[in-house]
Simulated assay, not measured.
Amino acid sequence: MKKIMDEQLIYEILSVVEEIPEGKVATYGQIASLIGRDKNARLVGKVLSQAEFYGRYPCHRVVNHAGRLAPGWQEQRFLLLEEGVSFKDANHVDMKENHWDC
């Protein structure tokens, strides 16, 4: 049985994250879909939670489908604000304005 989280999968996810333009956000599900794993949004989140072991990636540009920031990651909002991302409220990105249309 193939391991769910192998190096190739990690590379695919981080490669997509690297392509998200400054000032835009993508969703976990969107990234999963782009790598051909439509139902693996949580797996994308797991990989991103460990991304620092693989280098520097703009993981702060990834939010959930409703635009909610990652729980417990205080710096994410600050990093997005620095890039000009607008918010609906304190914890939700304005997806209509900032969603990455890839």
Rank of each mutant, 00 (worst) to 15 (best):
N64P: 04
H92Y: 04
W73P: 03
Y11G: 03
N91T: 10
K88Y: 08
R68L: 14
R37M: 13
H65G: 02
D89W: 02
G55C: 05
A66I: 06
K96R: 04
R37Y: 15
E83D: 05
P71C: 12
L79A: 10
V44T: 01
G55F: 03
N91E: 15
H65S: 06
E12T: 03
V17Q: 06
H99F: 15
L81R: 13
Q8C: 10
F78N: 09
I35Q: 08
C59Y: 00
H92M: 03
E82I: 02
R61C: 06
Q76S: 15
V25C: 13
D38W: 09
G29Q: 02
N64Y: 13
L80F: 04
V16T: 03
L9K: 03
G29I: 00
V62W: 00
G45E: 01
Q50K: 13
Q76M: 13
D38H: 08
D6W: 05
K96M: 10
Y57P: 02
K39W: 13
W73D: 12
V44S: 04
H65A: 03
L43D: 04
E75T: 13
L9P: 00
I20K: 00
V17W: 05
H65R: 09
G72P: 07
L81V: 11
P58K: 02
I13T: 01
N40Q: 13
F53N: 11
N40C: 07
N91R: 06
G72W: 14
H65M: 11
L43Q: 09
G72L: 15
C59S: 09
G84M: 14
L48W: 03
N40F: 10
N40T: 07
G23W: 01
L34Q: 12
A41E: 05
E52K: 15
T27R: 05
E52D: 10
R77A: 11
R42F: 11
Q8K: 13
E12D: 08
G72T: 09
G23M: 14
Y11C: 04
A32D: 05
K24E: 07
S33W: 02
E22Y: 07
R77I: 14
G23A: 11
W73N: 10
H60T: 13
K96V: 12
F87A: 02
V62Y: 00
A26K: 05
E82M: 09
Q74P: 08
V62T: 00
E83N: 08
E82L: 15
E19I: 02
H99D: 01
S33C: 07
K88Q: 06
T27Y: 03
E82Q: 12
R77D: 01
K46L: 14
P71Q: 09
K96G: 11
V62F: 00
L79I: 14
R68F: 15
I13L: 03
P71I: 13
Q76N: 10
N98G: 10
P58V: 07
D94K: 14
E75M: 10
Q30K: 11
G67D: 01
M95K: 10
E18H: 05
